[in-house]
């Protein structure tokens, strides 16, 4: 089982300090919701944990049984969804899932993920032709298809309808069985998932 550890983490962009001295330990089974105003640093915190950004101060690492994971193990352990990313628009849903499975070294993707997110009847559709809600579901599927020990979801509910929110709830429940979840959000529905809620930006 993988834990996420932040030790005295601070992030600044130029003179603007987003947060400083942040320490946190997220254990398997936990759901940590990162809340805060727009621009407070919620997405930045998730990017730091994903390894897409280096902290200005402090350290972020993942560990299993007290051993720090190296870059390759960290990559295999993380699933990440962000409003700033997209699937390949020229490819179909199936081709996107096939591609991300193959580059992760998986023989095939998990059909249960597709069922869970209601994508089964959209598999042959190009992503460019999907509504924003279905694009969000594809992004969730890509983040989950390797059954990551740590799932990072940045605003998972945006663009989703009621059925989509129920699917996010199912994703959260499933992830708690498998590992831990960090979620950046302000939506009351998302806040309710948290076993711990931290607020950034004061």
């Amino acid at each position: 089982m993988v834990s996420v550890i932040l030790h005295e983490v601070g992030q600044r962009f130029g003179r603007r300090v987003l947060f400083s001295g942040l320490s946190l330990r997220v254990e398997p089974g936990e759901v940590v919701v990162v809340a805060g105003l727009n621009g407070a640093g919620k997405s930045t915190l998730l990017r730091l944990i994903a390894g897409l950004l280096r902290p200005s101060t402090g350290e972020v690492w993942l560990e299993r049984a007290g051993q720090r994971l190296d870059a390759e193990q960290r990559r295999a352990s993380l699933g990440y969804l962000s409003p700033d990313t997209l699937p390949y628009r020229a490819l179909t849903v199936r081709e996107n899932l096939d591609f991300y499975s193959r580059v992760r070294g998986l023989p095939r993707w998990d059909a249960a993920v597709v069922e869970l997110l209601g994508l089964a009847d959209r598999l042959e559709q190009p992503v460019a032709e999907l509504s924003s809600g279905y694009v969000q579901r594809v992004k969730l599927a890509v983040a989950m298809l390797h059954q990551p020990a740590v799932l990072l979801l940045d605003e998972p509910g945006i663009t989703l309808d009621e059925a989509g929110h129920q699917q996010v709830a199912a994703v959260v429940a499933e992830q708690r069985q498998r590992g831990c979840l960090l979620l950046a959000a302000n939506d009351p529905r998302d806040l309710a998932y948290g076993t711990t809620i931290i607020r950034v930006g004061g």
């Binding site: 994903a50 390894g51 897409l52 390759e72 990559r75 993380l78 990440y80 962000s82 700033d84 990313t85 997209l86 699937p87 390949y88 628009r89 991300y100 580059v103 992760r104 992004k139 890509v142």
Partner: peptide, 13 residues
């Protein structure tokens, strides 16, 4: 530009 870079960076070696 296609906003696929970060997902690729996290998925592929």
């Amino acid at each position: 530009d296609g906003r696929t870079g970060e997902t690729l960076r996290l998925a592929a070696g």
